[in-house]
Design a protein around this nucleic acid. Structure first.
Lengths: 165, 165
DNA sequence: TTCGATAGTTCTATCGCGCAATGATCTATA
DNA sequence: TATAGATCATTGCGCGATAGAACTATCGAA
């Protein structure tokens, strides 16, 4: 414990926790910026991703997957439907529920989202070597595992970002 | 680039950016939880920390340091003053401005905040060896530097956290 | 003294969010 | 078949956080 004893490291800048929070918020905001040219918010993009993996599930099922309130899900779906990216269809087996499907435009948009995501990741890790990237990924995954974070639960992305200057 | 080619890593769970966002939000929320027994929010605690380093500066100066709106600063200062942790004093040289000072209670509270911060950091990094912690810190600092993040700009902490079940 | 600039405060509009109530529909049971 | 309770989606309402505009007091300069 002599290498980095937290008891003598009161500088928040050298704290893992602080750095993670700072980077997390910054990167989330940055991703929002990168998404703007596509006319999407983070949540909307996230929903598109969830949808491909779960095409045809009910709104509530998707909402649960995303960890969002059913009420919000209505609004979120409204927006994506208005954009023509998602389609509500009555489930003939249970006409209470709306099954959600990606439209063709939605699939195309998802491809663009994936491209943005790739560019985003590349920009973030541009300063690292491949080995460092792997190292970092492994460490972060360890932390995430320790904290009981499953891969699919996004707690909450900031809707907008002030610009962080 | 054969070790972790982003072009063939579409799984967001293995993305550095995604992990950082996920961890950042989770850890910020967790810190908020740890702060609750003290009766403080993250922003308030953050302001106490900023204040020790800048005792006697004007509200606006502190606001700028923290990257918050002057309007918010008024409210923030109000709260801390109501709690008896911070004191507004008129600056005799310029009676428009309010110089901010930590009270004795504020200094005591700051010590508790630091203790919580230490425990928080320890809990986050409990699963890492000292060497790994150093490695991770170095990598994160590199990223933060690459992103142009100065040590003092907290873009925005979430006021509360749903619990993330 | 008078004028423009500045620090802090207050007021107000906006936005995101969750809870509760509602209508439609399903399932179970008599 | 008919009725009761549960479930899905939707809508309405209010709360809390926030930023921008307007206001007051004070400063510095002409």
């Amino acid at each position: 414990m002599e290498t980095s004893d937290p008891a003598i490291a009161p500088q928040p800048e050298s704290s893992v926790a602080f750095l993670l929070v700072q980077l997390g918020f910054h990167i989330a905001g940055l991703f929002g910026e990168r998404l703007k040219p596509l006319g999407l918010e983070q949540r909307q993009a996230g929903m598109l991703v969830r949808l491909t993996e779960n095409d045809g599930r009910s709104q509530q099922a998707i909402a649960e997957l995303m960890g969002v309130n059913p009420t919000r899900m209505v609004f979120l779906t409204d927006e994506l439907e208005k954009l023509g990216l998602v389609e509500r269809r009555r489930n003939p087996a249970d006409r209470r529920s709306h099954a959600l499907y990606l439209t063709e435009a939605g699939t195309a948009m998802l491809a663009r989202v994936r491209e943005v995501t790739r560019a985003h990741e590349a920009a973030i890790t541009a300063g690292l070597s491949g080995a460092e990237r792997d190292q970092l990924t492994a460490l972060l995954q360890r932390l995430a595992g320790d904290q009981g974070l499953a891969g699919h639960s996004l707690p909450g992305m900031p809707p907008r970002h002030a610009g962080a200057d």
